[in-house]
Simulated scan of single mutants.
Amino acid sequence: MTRSVLYLFGSAAPPVQDLPEVVRRAQAEGFDVCVGLTPTAARWLADDIPSLEELTGLPVRSEYKSPGAPDAWPPADGILFAPATFHSINAWALGLTNHFVIGVVAEGIGKRIPTVTMPCVNAAYAAHPQFDRSVATLRGAGVSVLYGPGGFRPNQPGERRAEGYPWHLALGAVTGIAATGP
Rank of each mutant, 00 (worst) to 15 (best):
A12T: 03
F31M: 09
P129I: 08
A106C: 05
N90R: 06
G172E: 04
A173D: 07
S88H: 01
G140K: 07
V121A: 07
A12C: 09
G140N: 14
I113W: 00
R61L: 15
Y7G: 11
F86P: 01
G68K: 11
W44C: 01
S134T: 05
W92F: 15
D48F: 02
G78K: 02
L6F: 10
I49V: 15
A84N: 03
I102N: 13
V33G: 05
E107T: 11
Y7V: 11
G181M: 08
G57P: 10
L37H: 03
G36W: 04
L37D: 13
V101I: 12
G103Y: 08
R43I: 00
F9K: 00
H128N: 15
Y147D: 15
Q130C: 14
T115K: 06
Y64K: 13
R160N: 10
L169R: 13
D71W: 09
V60R: 13
G57S: 09
A170S: 04
G108Y: 05
V135I: 15
V104P: 02
Q17G: 13
N122P: 01
P166M: 14
P182Y: 06
V145D: 05
P129K: 06
R3I: 02
T40N: 05
A84V: 06
R133Y: 02
A178R: 11
P154L: 14
E54V: 11
